[in-house]
């Protein structure tokens, strides 16, 4: 009874959660150190990174373009619905471009890829953990970081910003097309609006966000997969945790980066 009372004490539960969270942060930090240590083994990770980059880029392109096209289109439709008569039409161009480039492009791509890439990485590495493939690699005196983690992280850090560029372009294009369906808007109006509030930093901001999201989408699932518990249940749990935690981190990063880079 005493034990049950102790474990249901909210202070104990909160304390455990904090300690557990700190332990995760510590282990993720150690993984990042391993990644930097393994970077010198270029011969090992570069060929594998090309394969991973192909998987991320080509494999995700369709879903990324689909989501960004819908996001751009819906943004334009809603702008058309809200702006009728009260504001000049070119503002739709401003709204679509700024919404897509600053927020929807990187965040939607980030969340989609957290599911697609994050789940895959956690499941792959988790399966390798439970089938002793990672132990086998270590037993051969080889670094799991340079064979398994660095290729995935580097490929993500390169390809996810590239996908965000595609998403931004397609999202804006879809927004232009959709806006012209519901409003008497010309290409020139849209372009004028798009340029009116445009800062070159907006494009960099989109890429900086994409880079940070890429780190979350690759490192967290690799960590979750790497520390998978026993059996199929362990792999399932790691995969779910990878998708949920990388999605939450993306949203947190979104807030932090907006505050730091746009409002400082």
């Amino acid at each position: 009874m005493a034990t049950a009372a102790t474990t249901s004490d909210p202070r104990v539960l909160i304390g455990r959660a904090i300690l557990g969270g700190m332990a995760h942060v510590g282990r993720v930090s150690m993984l990042v150190v391993e990644i930097f240590r393994g970077l010198k083994e270029v011969r090992i990770w570069v060929p594998r990174a090309f394969d991973e980059a192909w998987n991320i880029g080509v494999g995700s392109l369709f879903i990324v373009l689909l989501v960004s096209a819908f996001a751009g289109g819906v943004t334009a439709y809603q702008a058309g619905y809200q702006f009728t008569g009260s504001l000049p039409y070119y503002v739709v161009g401003t709204l679509v471009v700024e919404s897509i480039v600053l927020e929807l492009g990187p965040v939607l791509v980030g969340l989609i890829l957290a599911g697609r890439i994050g789940a895959r990485y956690a499941a792959e590495l988790g399966t390798m953990r439970v089938t002793e493939q990672i132990d086998a690699l270590e037993s051969l005196g080889r670094s799991p970081a340079s064979h398994l983690i660095i290729p995935r992280v580097v490929a993500g850090l390169i390809m996810i910003p590239v996908l965000v560029i595609f998403a931004d372009i397609v999202g804006v294009g879809a927004g232009l097309w959709a806006a012209k369906q519901v409003l008497p808007l010309t290409n020139a109006d849209f372009t004028y609006g798009a340029q009116y509030f445009w800062h070159p930093f907006d494009a960099y901001y989109s890429l900086i966000k994409a880079f940070f999201f890429a780190a979350a989408i690759t490192i967290i699932p690799c960590y979750m997969g790497f520390t998978t518990g026993q059996g199929a249940e362990g792999v399932g749990r790691s995969t779910t945790a990878a998708v949920v935690s990388s999605s939450v981190i993306i949203l947190l990063l979104d807030v932090v980066l907006a505050k730091v880079l746009l409002n400082s």
């Binding site: 399966t127 002793e132 132990d135 086998a136």
Partner: peptide, 9 residues
């Protein structure tokens, strides 16, 4: 030598 081979799939 691992129990189930532990070959890289």
């Amino acid at each position: 030598v691992f129990q189930n081979g532990a070959l890289f799939d």
